[in-house]
Design a protein around this nucleic acid. Structure first.
Lengths: 158, 158
DNA sequence: GCACCATACATGACGTGTCACCTAACCGGC
DNA sequence: GCCGGTTAGGTGACACGTCATGTATGGTGC
């Protein structure tokens, strides 16, 4: 077993940055969620699903493709779509080509909801994030986040 | 109602960065949570609570102070501490000075759990984040995140 | 003392997310 | 045709978080 002194603990700068990062993440998510909820009754996950659906030509998509696009587990999609179906934001129907498959389709209510929510959401993201960043910083963050994401894919401890 | 063309939609660079950010955020949290769960049976929130408790001199803290430190709502603290109490990670006891108050205290089980979890957690954060960043980048990110946090009206003061 | 309000914390309802597991349908071999 | 493995998707149990509300105590003005 490793001794305490062997562990490469975070130094003060690293610790500060890590706390800022995690704190900011929590605040951003909470604020965006709260504002959208108040403005249009949609949650963040609702919004993500509806964005994908409006971006597809037919306004419908297979559950698995939705899962892949959102990087969600299929069971998560299943649960969430079920909840959204109860609120009439989407509808489900079987897939004629594949008896196991299912299509998720956006409803008129869903389309109305996201069209109402989108402008305020974008404004909020601008206000909270992009208004305070230069173009260079945006590019730099994009590069850094992309680097970390691709690294994370490779490095898995078994 | 505002026309679609009036909305300051995100441009391609901004959209890419925003998606990278949110995607990375989800992946980091999920990975850290999953690894710690597998390694020591603690969740991320569990870990945060135990860190605060081990950082206090007495190993105990008032519920409200815990909420302030973690930037959590008190009801969240209440729920979470209740769950942790069931697993014998912490214990609750009334406050003699203030009949309304309650102390949360770390148990031996809790102390053992976090001492077991901490090294792996730090190593994971290093592997996923700091190993891929230069010292300058860490400083820069710290500055940017701090700027966004204070702008959002949700200051740090740690 | 006694209203009156604020504070400290708990609780119930509900949406969200993960994990383990299930069923049903497809698909390749024979 | 049948058989065995894979795939699509759903479900139940449970942890997590928020909101609204409840309950008891503390404090303050009269």
């Amino acid at each position: 077993m490793a001794e305490v002194t062997d562990i490469p603990w975070l130094n003060d700068d690293e610790q500060r940055m890590w706390r800022q990062w995690m704190g900011l993440n929590a605040e951003l998510l909470a604020t965006l969620n709260r504002e959208m909820q108040a403005d249009s009754g949609l949650s963040n996950p609702d919004y993500q699903v509806l964005v994908v659906l409006t971006d597809t030509a037919e306004g419908q998509i297979r559950v698995s493709d939705l899962a892949t696009t959102l990087q969600w587990e299929r069971s998560r999609v299943s649960h969430h779509v079920a909840r959204m179906e109860k609120r009439d934001l989407v509808s489900r129907r079987g897939c004629p080509d594949d008896g196991r498959g299912a299509f998720v389709r956006i409803t008129e209510t869903g389309r109305a909801a996201i069209e109402r929510a989108a402008p305020a959401h974008v404004l909020a993201v601008r206000r909270l994030v992009f208004d305070a960043l230069t173009e260079d910083e945006v590019a730099q963050l994009n590069e850094i986040f992309g680097r970390l994401r691709s690294r994370a894919g490779l490095a898995t401890t078994e």
